[in-house]
């Protein structure tokens, strides 16, 4: 039932993208997202399309699997497209009562939609090819300089990785409790809003209890292994940049510069 959630999910295959350092992927994703907002030329969008689809191919994650993540933004997409389409002033294309659709509106709406879809696809490539733990490791290391300003970087990263680690556990737990209650005749699907909300009680009470129990167990286990925060803590697998990371950086930076300079082109 709940196993189909894809947001923030890692897709376990082996690809050159999976093997990159998480910091490279973080920086690359950032630059890619920025680049989408730097261009408003057709050439720019074409380059971004080629770049995105090459990267998707490189990641060896099935395209179908990625598109599933887009379902979450359908509403947002529809809203922003229609606002742009109907409310942009300019040369009128045709009129339906008081609604008028303009050339400019149509173009902005299309570009807006492409931008949004590319944003989601681009960032999901990062989460699909990087384990949550590698991702927080990467974040901790890249933001390490903020420790000097008193930001508890390690603690935040640790909380993040614990939270991420708990998502699948809690999803599984929800699934289990739901099944157990369904076996006792509970019904989670039918009925109005109030009936549905009341049907959640047999699910939520055991779920909360189990979440607290797991949190207590985990803190006990961490203390038993003498966890004392990030001070002086070493890593079994410290992050190290390799040859592929350097190549990736060069490619992304060239792509970024090209995208920036498309604005100098006439179209």
């Amino acid at each position: 039932m709940l196993r189909d959630i894809t947001i923030g999910q890692y897709y376990p295959v082996s690809s050159p993208l999976h093997r990159l350092d998480p910091r490279t992927k973080l920086a690359g994703t950032m630059l890619y997202l920025l680049s989408l907002f730097m261009t408003d030329r057709l050439t720019g969008y074409l380059i971004a399309t080629v770049f995105l689809f090459t990267v998707i191919r490189l990641s060896r994650v099935p395209f179908r699997f990625m598109v599933k993540g887009l379902k979450a933004i359908i509403l947002l997409l529809a809203l922003s497209v229609s606002f742009n389409m109907f409310l942009t002033p300019g040369r009128e294309l045709f009129r339906l009562g008081f609604i008028s659709i303009t050339y400019e509106g149509l173009f902005t709406a299309a570009f807006m939609a492409i931008r949004l879809v590319y944003l989601v696809l681009g960032s999901s490539i990062m989460t699909l090819t990087t384990t949550p733990n590698a991702l927080t490791d990467g974040l901790e290391k890249s933001l390490g300089f903020m420790k000097r300003f008193g930001v508890p970087v390690h603690e935040i990263a640790m909380m993040m990785s614990i939270a991420l680690r708990f998502i699948p556990i809690l999803v599984e737990e929800t699934d289990k409790i739901m099944k157990a209650q369904t076996a006792r005749g509970a019904d989670f699907e039918s009925g109005g809003l109030i009936k549905k909300a009341r049907a959640m009680v047999p699910l939520l009470v055991p779920l909360f209890i189990s979440a607290f129990r797991r949190a207590l167990d985990l803190s006990m286990a961490m203390e038993a292994r003498c966890y004392h925060g990030g001070e002086g803590r070493t890593k079994m697998k410290p992050l190290r940049y390799g040859k592929n990371d350097r190549i990736a950086y060069v490619i992304v930076i060239i792509y970024f510069i090209v995208m920036g300079s498309t604005n100098l082109l006439p179209f």
């Binding site: 289990k176 099944k179 157990a180 047999p202 055991p206």
Partner: peptide, 10 residues
């Protein structure tokens, strides 16, 4: 009756 069924009490 699931494994550890006591976790379903509410």
């Amino acid at each position: 009756v699931f494994q550890y069924p006591e976790y379903q009490l509410f």
